[in-house]
């Protein structure tokens, strides 16, 4: 996995609440057996009309925001289906950070597994960041994961919380499986005790 440390980029405002994973990447693109190439279908039904033409008014179709790497999104971002195709599509499009007041659990986890940093902020800060993002000139943000800061265009700094272990994995681009396999002994001894006690399981 790619390491995440400092991200500087354009933030796109998407204040709609309950942006679900069906919206992020609809079903017809789940037939793939690969992780890549989904970016062009991100937000498919909002981005393209029935004839496959780009819908001009949709924000990610605007020249400036088509280069965004940060989304300031509405509450309960990523709700619905567990499809990891949603973060794959975001990543493929170029999104590396999503800032919201809340995320759905499964999506939140899936982001970290793909080098995307989801950040939870308070409502008030969320409003300021949305405002920043709404104007092209102020839509540039910097995310400093090491120091857990969002640096706004006006140089204001906003602190954010992130789980220690998840931060460590992101900063070092670590893959969970490799880390867990270091605990093989612990897993084996657990399995032994467990199968003695719960022979049917």
């Amino acid at each position: 996995m790619e390491k995440f440390n400092i991200l500087e980029g354009i933030a796109v405002p998407m204040p709609l609440i309950n942006i679900d994973t069906d919206m992020l990447i609809p079903k017809q693109f789940l037939k793939t057996i690969k992780r890549t190439g989904l970016g062009e279908n991100l937000f498919f039904e909002m981005r393209y009309d029935q004839n496959g033409n780009k819908i001009k008014d949709f924000i990610l179709n605007k020249e400036h925001y088509s280069k965004a790497s940060i989304i300031v999104g509405g509450a309960n971002f990523g709700c619905g289906s567990s499809r990891e195709h949603a973060p794959w599509a975001l990543k493929d499009f170029g999104i590396k950070c999503i800032i919201s007041t809340s995320f759905a659990d499964i999506f939140f986890n899936n982001c970290f597994k793909n080098g995307i940093l989801p950040i939870i902020v308070y409502e008030e800060i969320h409003q300021s960041l949305l405002q920043d993002a709404e104007t092209e000139r102020t839509s540039y943000m910097k995310i400093d994961l090491e120091n857990q800061k969002i640096i706004r265009n006006n140089a204001d700094q906003v602190d954010f919380e992130v789980d220690e272990f998840k931060k460590y994995c992101l900063l070092n681009g670590l893959d969970d499986i490799g880390l867990t396999l270091k605990n093989t002994d612990k897993i084996s001894s657990f399995e032994k005790k467990y199968s003695d006690k719960f022979s049917w399981a």
Partner: peptide
């Protein structure tokens, strides 16, 4: 019982375990 993403599917296939934070 709960849903997981594909990276976690791979993790469970490989280790029969899951990294979790308690809810």
């Amino acid at each position: 019982a709960h849903g997981i993403g594909t990276s976690e599917v791979e993790h469970v296939l490989a280790t029969q375990t899951l990294i979790q934070q308690k809810s």
